[in-house]
């Protein structure tokens, strides 16, 4: 909403676009963006990769989680220009064709979503969380997944799905 920033419009909006390259889901994508375009908006609005979701744009809900250089990050709090050259995996790149990632299949099996809007972020976050290797117990998983909100209240099923993959050792 409108704040009371004392910025001169011209000063901000004459910034020059920058040429950047993002390696997204194994494909190198060249992009010309203004410096204040977030990675989330670059994905959704400039590259038509709409699987990554915008739920708050403030780093409070986790819906925009992607994997960047092997770490889970909030793409709404990342500027696209700051990720020049980075390796990014979005939900579209988690699996190929009909071969779902074990977490994707586990989410379906456990009915770990209803509306599905937080789901890409939950799955990317879970992939990142499991590869971090810090979670030992169910309580750890719940704690380390708590940055990803779910308003449908699928919380228990989400953790069930992740635990199945974690205990089954199904993740890379």
């Amino acid at each position: 909403m409108n704040s009371e920033l004392d910025l001169k419009p011209a000063a901000v909006f004459t910034s020059k676009t920058r040429q950047i390259t993002l390696n997204i889901n194994g494909i190198s994508r060249g992009l010309e963006v203004l410096p204040y375009v977030t990675l989330l908006d670059a994905l959704r609005e400039y590259l038509d990769l709409t699987g990554t979701k915008k739920g708050c744009d403030h780093g409070q809900c986790g819906a925009c989680t992607v994997i960047c250089d092997d770490k889970r990050i909030l793409s709404c709090l990342s500027l696209a220009v700051a990720k020049d050259g980075a390796e990014i995996t979005t939900i579209e790149g988690v699996s190929t064709g009909n071969d779902l990632h074990p977490l994707q299949q586990a989410f379906i099996d456990h009915d770990a979503f209803q509306c599905g809007y937080c789901t890409p972020g939950q799955i990317c976050s879970a992939i990142g969380m499991l590869s971090e290797g810090k979670a030992k117990t169910r309580a750890d998983v719940k704690e380390l997944m708590s940055g990803n909100l779910c308003r449908c209240g699928a919380n228990m099923s989400i953790i069930d799905a992740i635990m199945e993959v974690k205990d089954g050792g199904g993740h890379e």
């Binding site: 939900i91 579209e92 988690v94 699996s95 379906i108 009915d111 599905g116 809007y117 789901t119 890409p120």
Partner: peptide, 21 residues
Amino acid sequence: ISRIEGPLKVTGAAKYSGEYN
């Protein structure tokens, strides 16, 4: 039965109202 649209939702292929570019 598992949700029929499940595969679309877990792969990011399900399009919501702000995603028609």
